[in-house]
């Protein structure tokens, strides 16, 4: 579904991504892991079109989208869920959600999707006339994910959905990402929470210094000694049980 060939991108003269190759097949959950400053967010910006490529190409659904503007990519179904702090604080919860559906005209389907968002995240329904600036960290994270769902995405890209949240909230959110995937949406989740991400995903990429250092099945990565040593500690069995029940 998404194919990235030798992607190089950065800011000004600073080249952050130095030749990324990735392939994400339709309906899968893929995670991109790495520490701070390794190029994760830059990669998302390049895929959603906020920064231009210096070299390489991106294609989606078999069509080359390298030259498309961000809003044109959204129309094709590539939707980036922003970091939680990037909700619109002066707009209500429902205005934020409707903004997600900006490119769509099918009123009936939009209403149905809004109901689905409220079903996934009931707290958003309770807060729907509240300004999103008054929400808690976890609620805002749910809001930006809901806003992404409202765009009717084919592929949803999430930028660190677990950042700065309590473990219980993270579990709830990851459970819901799993539910979104089950509705047929391809998921790319960028994370620092390696354990949670590898339990959720089917396939993982590990990025360091702007190149893909390691990739493979999530189950293999989770037991890979190199990954274990640099990222993980302790057992993964308990979390896995909670997430998949």
């Amino acid at each position: 579904m998404l194919q990235i060939n030798n992607m190089q991108a950065g800011y000004g003269n600073l080249r952050i991504l130095r030749g990324i190759n990735m392939e994400i097949s339709a309906g899968s959950i893929v995670t991109l892991l790495g520490g701070n400053g390794t190029g994760k967010s830059t990669l998302l910006k390049a895929v959603s079109g906020l920064i231009p490529l210096m070299e390489g190409s991106i294609s989606f659904d078999g069509v080359d989208i390298t030259g498309l503007k961000p809003h044109e990519r959204v129309r094709r179904g590539i939707v980036q869920v922003t970091q939680a702090k990037e909700a619109y604080p002066a707009m209500t919860v429902e205005e934020n959600l409707m903004l997600g559906a900006y490119t769509r005209k099918d009123r009936g389907a939009i209403k149905a999707d809004l109901d689905q968002v409220y079903e996934f995240f009931p707290v958003l329904r309770e807060r729907r006339v509240q300004l999103s600036g008054t929400l808690s960290g976890g609620e805002v994270q749910m809001l930006v994910i809901g806003r992404g769902m409202m765009a009717g995405p084919k592929m949803l890209m999430l930028d660190e959905p677990s950042a700065a949240l309590a473990p219980k909230v993270v579990l709830d959110i990851f459970g819901n990402i799993n539910r979104i995937a089950k509705t047929g949406v391809t998921i790319l989740v960028v994370e620092q929470n390696v354990r949670m991400a590898l339990i959720l995903a089917e396939y993982g990429y590990i990025i360091r210094d702007g190149v893909i250092m390691l990739q493979g099945d999530a189950k293999k990565l989770i037991s890979d000694p190199a990954v274990k040593e640099s990222f993980l500690g302790g057992s993964v069995a308990d979390t896995s049980k909670i997430l998949h029940n």
Partner: peptide, 12 residues
């Protein structure tokens, strides 16, 4: 409020 986020909402 923010042009980058607006872009990501599919706004021209």
């Amino acid at each position: 409020h923010n042009k980058d986020i607006a872009y990501l909402m599919g706004i021209n």
